[in-house]
Design a protein around this nucleic acid. Structure first.
Length: 237
DNA sequence: GCGACAG
DNA sequence: ATCTTGTCGC
């Protein structure tokens, strides 16, 4: 069962205050046991219908074979606000997580872990809610700086991502001569272990398999029929 | 005041 | 994130 940490329909000010509280609970030491199952989560949006589709894929490890895949569709709840992504996407991701029959030992999310202004990106937030180790696998930078000249062009090379003197993640070349990924611990995992699992689950593509498969599933063309206008409602306006 | 800004 | 066709390269 998921313990309800808090409600989700908050104002931006309330959400930021909540993040400051929750960030204090994030654990950056490894509490990763035997890893046999890794889940990847992602969400796609259909602008015209304002529908969201959350997707989760469970892979075996180290084989990386797909064991389960599920989606959950619902109307968008919140607009996108930089720094508050989890309030837009996490509720849907938690819903689709409920469909898993096998509890994952590790979760990889599309977005930041602690590489966030308040050190609680969507991966950290999900980890706290589920009490499962999580890793943030973002395709672009939110905060922090890094030495791009020191980042090698070959797959596997990485440099630390630093914000105000604090190491908050790593910029990782998952594929040779391709734009790097921005990796950061979410919850219950160290940066070193985060990098290790990202590289161990990357199979010739820029995105590691868990996130790549979830991304693919979320974007599949077949969507549910749009709801009739009278049963549509914007929950944030 | 001016940019920057996960997805 | 989404919109949107072809195209260059391994």
């Amino acid at each position: 069962m998921q313990e309800s940490l808090h409600k989700w329909n908050l104002t931006p000010e309330e959400a930021i205050a909540l993040q400051r509280e929750l960030a204090q609970r994030v654990i950056l030491q490894d509490h990763v046991g035997d890893v046999r199952f890794i889940a990847g989560v992602d969400m796609a949006i259909r602008k015209e219908t304002e529908m969201a589709r959350a997707a989760i894929v469970l892979l075996s490890y180290p084989e990386l074979e797909i064991i389960e895949k599920h989606v959950h569709e619902e109307p968008l709840r919140m607009p996108y606000v930089p720094g508050l992504l989890s309030f837009r996407e996490a509720p849907s991701l938690l819903e689709v997580f409920k469909k898993l029959r096998q509890r994952p030992d590790l979760i990889m999310a599309d977005g930041q872990g602690i590489a966030h202004p308040r050190r609680i990106g969507i991966a950290s937030h999900l980890g706290l809610w589920l009490n499962i180790p999580t890793i943030g696998c973002a395709k672009s930078l939110l905060v922090g700086k890094y030495n791009s000249k020191e980042l090698g062009e070959e797959a596997g090379s990485w440099v630390p991502l630093i914000d105000h003197g604090e190491t908050i993640g790593a910029v990782v070349r998952t594929r040779s001569r391709v734009k790097p990924m921005f990796i950061s611990p979410g919850h219950l995992v160290s940066l070193e272990t985060s990098i290790r699992y990202v590289l161990a689950t990357t199979k010739g593509y820029r995105l590691p398999e868990p996130t790549r498969q979830a991304d693919k599933l979320s974007k599949e063309k077949t969507w549910m029929e749009p709801a009739e206008p009278e049963e549509q409602q914007s929950l944030w306006q």
